[in-house]
């Protein structure tokens, strides 16, 4: 693992590309959490995920890179954009995207970054591995998943089914609870229906199915 470590002062081409991609990922992630426009946050997240897919490619994890592109850039971003639009978020600049505990968040994040970076550099300063391509292709990963990791794979498929059913149950409005009332709207203090006149079906005003 740690054989004949080259110097940090003469980086290889792979390391330079990785560091550039990592800088893009970190910079766009910073823009995700600091931008004033909701839609731009989602679009900067695309840049972050794309740069991370490039990082996986440099690290010879090709299949993971393409799965990242397919699922994150393809599906998760679209879901988040759907969420932004269905909650009628303001398009354009909005001033109140940060909550009141922003200074505390800055302190906590800086402390986390300092501790993690210090520990990581201290622990893995001498770690080096040459990158040999062909270790993360679909054939190797598929063989590994369907021989060693079959049981977690099946458990994960059941979890996906449960998440699917859960999302459907949460987003449907005509599923009633045991006492005949709306399942989501019958909080103990009746708070949940304060915005709907007469406790009628809530989605009439949103139009968001």
């Amino acid at each position: 693992m740690t054989e004949a470590m080259p110097s940090y002062l003469s980086p290889t081409g792979q390391e330079i590309i990785f560091l550039l991609l990592g800088a893009v990922a970190v910079g766009s992630a910073l823009l995700v959490v600091t931008t004033r426009q909701l839609v731009h946050a989602a679009l900067w997240l695309v840049v972050t995920f794309g740069a991370l897919a490039g990082c996986y490619l440099v690290l010879t994890a090709e299949f993971v890179a393409w799965v990242q592109v397919l699922i994150y850039v393809g599906a998760v971003i679209v879901l988040l954009l759907f969420g932004i639009m269905l909650t009628r978020a303001p398009i354009g600049r909005s001033t109140d995207l940060d909550s009141g505990n922003r200074p505390a968040a800055v302190v906590v994040a800086l402390a986390t970054a300092a501790i993690l970076v210090t520990v990581v550099i201290d622990g893995f300063r001498m770690a080096y591995t040459p990158l040999t391509p062909g270790q993360g292709g679909a054939a190797e990963l598929g063989g590994s998943i369907f021989s060693t990791w079959v049981l977690p794979f099946e458990a994960l498929s059941v979890l996906l089914l449960a998440a699917l059913i859960g999302a459907i149950v949460l987003s449907r409005t005509d599923i009633t609870g045991a006492n005949g009332t709306n399942q989501r709207g019958d909080g103990p203090n009746g708070l949940s229906r304060t915005d709907t006149p007469g406790g009628g079906s809530p989605p009439d005003q949103t139009g968001g199915h």
Partner: peptide, 17 residues
């Protein structure tokens, strides 16, 4: 590839999160 590079990038991403 030095392992420090991806580890540091990942630590920074986690802190941003």
């Amino acid at each position: 590839m030095h392992i420090v590079y991806p580890a540091v990038v990942s630590a920074l991403l986690f802190s941003i999160g």
